[in-house]
Design a protein around this nucleic acid. Sequence first.
DNA 1: CAGGGTAGCT
DNA 2: AGCTACC
Length: 720
Amino acid sequence: MDISNDELEEDETQWESRFLDSAASPAPVSEASVNKKPGPPHRVILHFDLDCFYAQVEMLRNPALTHVPLGIQQKYIIVTCNYVARERGVNKLMSVTAAKEKCPELVLVKGEDLTHYREMSYKVTELLMSYCPLVERLGFDENFLDATEMVESRLAQTAESDRFSFKGHVYNHSSAEVQASDHPRLALGSHIAAELREAIHSKVGLTGCAGIATNKLLAKLVSGTFKPNQQTALLQEDVSHVMGCLSSLRKVPGVGHQTAKRLQALGLVSVKDLQLYPLNELVREFGSPSAQRLKNLALGVDDARVTPTGAPQSLSDEDSFKKMSSTKEVLDKIQELLSSLLERMHKDGRQPQTLRLTIRRYSETNKWFSRESRQCPIPSHIGQKITSGSIEDAVVVLVPVAVKLFHKMVDRGAAFHLTLINVCFSNLQTRGAAVSGKAAITSFFTRNTSPTKTQVFSSQSQEDLSQDADGRCWDHQVSGSITTAQRRAETTPESSSGSEVPVSGFTWKQSAVVAVKRSQKETCSTAGCNSNETTRALERQVPPNVDPEVFQLLPEEIQKELLSPAYLNSLSSTSASPSVADIGYTSENKPSQPFTDSQNTEDVNEAAGESDASDRASSWSPQCSAGTSVQGETVTEGEKLSSPRSSDSGFPGNVDPKVFAELPPDIRRELMSEWRQQKPLLKTPSSRKAGRSSTGKEKDRKTAGRGSQLNNLLKYFKPS
DNA sequence: CAGGGTAGCT
DNA sequence: AGCTACC
């Protein structure tokens, strides 16, 4: 059976002319056919997969770990380990106890905080993007790169005698025996892969594998053929061999557990089974698009393009645990997660427009995997607190919102048993300001910056409300209370005045930890331990639209904050936007729509964003890309680097590819980084509906008003 | 599934 | 909002 005809060698002149056509006429190339069928025949796709990524990062951070068996631990499992540990029988996703049995000398490093992994991961992606914009991330440790145009341009420039060998392995062949001249594109692809792996090693310090093939599926399948730090190219003639070697359908990327089960129900277990199964029957089970895709995957056919990933579309933070069943714990956890998330969000520079809270409930009858979530819009005046750096203000306001979302899933007064909480910001809005671009770019590299100077409140949180699992704890009168004055003395020893509490030297997160520890000695909340009159007095003071129960759960300082004239004013000053009430303080039917009234958002942003150019110039100072700079050099073939095709590549339509290719690598990188910020807006699929209010001015706003260096660079761009 | 993320489709 | 998939 002739598999994948469409992927086999085609008439080259036809492809050449198509390529030239689209390169010559940048304008058209209907974006209608956005992610399918399009591409040139003969793509060259690279898949990069870093070796035991987390372990490598930890070994770079602490070279003493390099030669000891090392495991990266998240909770009770080893998520990955270095090769020393693997030699001793340790494997990925092994329980800590099993791993320690196998290898008692195993050194463990906690890997729950992903910050360093995320930073290194983006360094790799951005390095790749400095060579070619078509880079798609898959997790933190894998990247696809569409090298088609790089290959074509080398093909045009390289003498035949210079390109007749493969670098690295060739699947199923001893690569000496392969005539590279029969497979010039893949052979050149293997050279590019080798260069890029070397660049990753020399500039970021990480090793990894690569696969070279004609589509993503194949490149990925083949990349791990030879494992640490090697690469493998796949010739078309060996496609059926690769697919046939897969031990089950589950091994086909794109076929997950559920799909494999449904296929199994149809009697299909091997790849060959699926290849031979009648398409119409498949359509019956999966519908036409999915059926086609599945069958193609089994054949090694994959039309999916390398879709530039761009900046993340959401930021989330989560924690899992054996059991959480008190409201107090939930509140504390939400506060912890939100605090670190807000810090990340601030560094990113974009403004989240929706907040989502996800939980996983315990259930003995292995029903666990299911999660529930609730989300709500974030009014822009609150979002602005994040981008502007008022992180504490944002925490103050968002914690109760998140608690409210929690109570949309878990009844007050009902017992619960959670095993996970996740907090997520999404619907991220790039603002017109230079600030956002800079912050977002540097966010992946920069280390923790200046500590927060002032601490508006010390979070103690209501210890004892926690109480019973019945969840109604905040309703009872609690004895053993301490006085407000005592509490203040304990929680804010730095100052006797409650109004301004400067806590220098602590970041917010650190103070939060400190505060929580202190709070463990406390016995009750402000509300909980007050007499009836006091409680009523407080209730009278509940800010408009704030759920009194939620309000009472809050630390006193937060309550004060919410009652402050400044805060109350902020509610009314943005009359056109939803008040806090709209995002979940009141109980029923708020619109679950993301906040879409962008008009006044724009106004404010514009005002804030158009700071003068000199400010922005400093934002673009060189160290923005420090650490990964691809300084001068090595792109030895600098002039050979092919330029991205502007038409269907997803590359900004207004870039001049020739000019771009000639820019110094670090400048290219910077542009790519910048572009990455815009990319989500350019993406077709879902981001289209989100966030943008059909004022098709997006592009103009973005390209206008960037940093001065960028403005200089922008002269290379044709007006779109 | 474990764990802490992501993205896309429905 | 949930599911499926990927790492």
